[in-house]
Structure formats: C-alpha cells, structure tokens
Design a binder for these strands. Structure first.
Lengths: 215, 215
DNA sequence: ACTTGTCCTGTCATGCCGTCAGCTTACCGA
DNA sequence: TCGGTAAGCTGACGGCATGACAGGACAAGT
C-alpha cells in the first residue's frame, strides 16, 4: 500500500534504517512540542536521536519534509474520529449524547497531537497544498459524517432545506479544531476546561439540529 | 502614552530612524504574506528595505520581536471590531442583522491581516505569552461584547441561566477566527465564499440567542 | 574469509546570524 | 560659521546550520 520506504538518494531502507528513521521522527515530534516551530533545527533533532545531521538528510529533504511524514501518520489516526459520529442519532437524548462524544473525541485527539497539528494548521493557512491536503484528510472524516447527519435531518424535514450541510459541518469542525488548539485561551476568559466541553457540545447540537438538546 | 521609540542599544529614534524602522516592518509584513514564516530571514527583509541586516538588529532583537510589533499595530486596529456588535440588538430582525454584520466585519478584518494573524495564532498555540496576550487583545473586544449580549439575554430570561456567557462568546469568536483563516479550506468542501457568510451568521445567532433568526 | 548492499558519519563549501567598531549624517548652540 | 554631539548606517567577522559527498562500518549470505 504505502510502497517501500526510501532514502533521499533512492535506496530502499532496511530494518535498521527504518528504525533510525522512525527515531528521528519521534525526536522531531518531541522537539515540536517543546520549542517553537521556527527554532527547530536539524542539528538538534539529530543530536537528540544520537545521530548526525547527515543521517537526517538521508531520510528527509528537510525539516518540513519530516513534519509532513509525521502529519501523515497523525492523519491516518485521525480518520478514526469518524467513528464517534458515524451512524449516531441526532434526535432526543441520543442527540445530546452524540454531540458530547464528538466534542470529547475531538478535543482528546487534538490535545494528544497538538504540536504537529498546529504546524499543519500554519502550513495550510500559508497556502501550502501538501499541508492543506493533510488538514483536509484529518477533518474530512468528521466533516463528512456531520454533513451526512445534517442532510439526513433535512430529508426528514427537521432542518431548513436551503441550508448547505457542508457549510454547517465545516463551521462546526473548524470551531472544534480552533477551540481545541486554544484551550488555554479560554481559561483567561474565566472559562474552565471542564466547563468548555458541555458548551461546545451545546453549540454543536444547535448547529446540526437547529434545536436545543434534550438533556 | 507609548513612550519614545528606542533602538536596541538605548538611543531614541528620530524622524529618519522611525521611517527606516517602519519600512522594515512593512517589508517584513509583505514577506510574511509571500513566504512561509519559517523561511523569513532577516537578510531578506533588510535587502527588501534597501538596508543592511545590521540596521534591522538596531531596531529589533530578532524577527519575532518585529512580528510582535506589527501584531501590536494590528491589535490596536482590531479593537475597533467591538463597534460591530456593541450595543446592538439581538432580538427579531435586528438580531439577524447584528449577526451578519459581526461576521462580515470579522472576516474582512481577518482577510486583511491574515499573514500576521496566523503567526500570532501559532505563537499563542505554542504557549508564548506575548503572542497569547496579543491574541487576547484582538479577540477580547468582540468576546466581551458578545458575552455581554448573552448575559443580557439571560437577565431577560430569554437564555438558559446556567450557561456561561464567556464560554459561548469564546467559542463563537474562536469559530469565526478559524473560519476566517481557513476560508480557502471551505471551497474544497464545496462551500463557496459567499455561501459561507450567512451560514456563519446563522450559527452565531443560534449560539447567542439559542434561536433561529427571524429573517 | 569474501562479497554485496545497507547504514552511518567526517568533512567541506556555502550562507545566514548577530555583534562590533567605526564611519557618515543631521541637528543645535555659541 | 563652526565645532560638538547624538543619531543613523554599514562592512566585516566569528559562529553555527545547511546540505552534499565519499568513504568507512556493519550485517547477511555464500
């Protein structure tokens, strides 16, 4: 499926090589969590991995290239987020439950991968197509499921027909992503972490169904 | 109020100096729009401004310091966003109008300053307090006004009392900011620019009042 | 032991960073 | 008019990251 892992100069990487490569990715990942993206240097990553800069360049064209690799792994994991909403009901108490689970899953996923996700966000905002596609890949699953939910409610006549399900779903997804990456920001508005979740769930429910949830 | 503009080594900047300084800021601003933040080099900014790197370091400690300066100017401008919601009505047709104007103003402001704002976003997400405060400064005005609006509706008994106005307002503001900086992203969900605005306004109205707008 | 292909590193040219001393320019009072 | 003083700018330099290469170390099969 993913083809063989190759070095920059075209060799196929063996067992040992792949281990080194992965170690570099792990160290880069740690680095991104602990220092600003702008200040992450190849030499630091290599040192942390107990190897030399030259080795790094054997597996990745540059820092950005390695970041894309990590993001790819995260994106694959993120596709699993669909599970939290796919096929779930949005009516009655079940709807409130669904909204809560979505918020929970999303925030948890974002918290776990915040360092790499904010770099992806930046790259996408800067117009880099590779990051942009990756961001889509991560958000698409949830977005698609949400849009389906809205469309279904429309079919049942429970939601205004002239709304665009994708626009609603996209706005919701974007809100969740932003809220997740700026969770700290809320605390300075006097909003505690635990308090934020139900409010987000409420807004998600409102957006999808147009109605307040039945708790 | 702002005190005198000073160089890094403590001299007060005169007319000519301030002009150079501003030119460097302008060039940096342009640079941020045209190339990735990570790749913006002091030498490029200096060259673009027709001066030498040493001059840059006379006015700013580093690229980040200059970025903070630009962001400060943008933040001052952003404080004016309050005007689009402050004291506006959220009931009946006027409410729908208010929501639309808020979305319009916000998106326009973000579009105009997207380059610097995404850097501020990154810095804040990375936990840098200076960027974080700046981001607050920009969002606080709108956030405060929105929170006031929610609190007022609560007092009138039109909105659930046990909701935290700041949490609602914060979520809305964060959604708008994210939607604004990823406007392109929506087009690949099949959502056109013009289509996005009313949907965002709808969500804003839903969040603040808990009800669908009367159009 | 020998061969083969993978894997890593020492080294080097290049270019940016950040600082300093020192030069030029503008302002001001005598 | 003429220094004196402070502002404004730059050339040059040591230091460090980048990115490329060739060659040495290592594991596996014969």
């Amino acid at each position: 499926m993913t083809g063989q892992v190759r070095t920059v100069d075209g060799r196929v990487a063996g067992r040992r090589g792949q281990a080194t490569r992965q170690k570099l990715l792990d160290c880069l990942s740690e680095m991104l969590s602990s220092s600003p993206y702008r200040d992450v240097k190849v030499i630091d990553v290599a040192r942390k991995a107990g190897t030399s800069p030259a080795t790094f360049y054997q597996y990745f064209p540059d820092v950005e290239g390695a970041v894309l690799e990590i993001a790819d792994q995260v994106a694959a994991e993120g596709a699993g987020l669909t599970g939290t909403v796919e096929g779930c009901s949005w009516v009655g108490k079940a709807g409130w439950q669904t909204a809560q689970e979505l918020v929970d899953g999303f925030l948890e996923f974002w918290r776990k991968n915040d360092a790499i996700l904010r770099v992806v966000d930046l790259g996408a905002a800067e117009g880099d197509k590779r990051f942009y596609k990756l961001r889509m890949k991560i958000l698409n699953s949830v977005n698609g499921s949400l849009a389906d939910a809205v469309a279904e409610l429309q079919a049942k006549g429970k939601v205004d027909k002239d709304l665009n399900p994708a626009a609603i779903a996209g706005s919701v997804v974007v809100m969740l992503a932003a809220a997740a990456s700026h969770q700290k920001g809320f605390s300075s508005w006097g909003v505690k972490q635990a308090e934020l979740k139900p409010h987000l769930a409420l807004l998600v429910h409102l957006a999808v169904t147009g109605k307040k949830p039945a708790k």
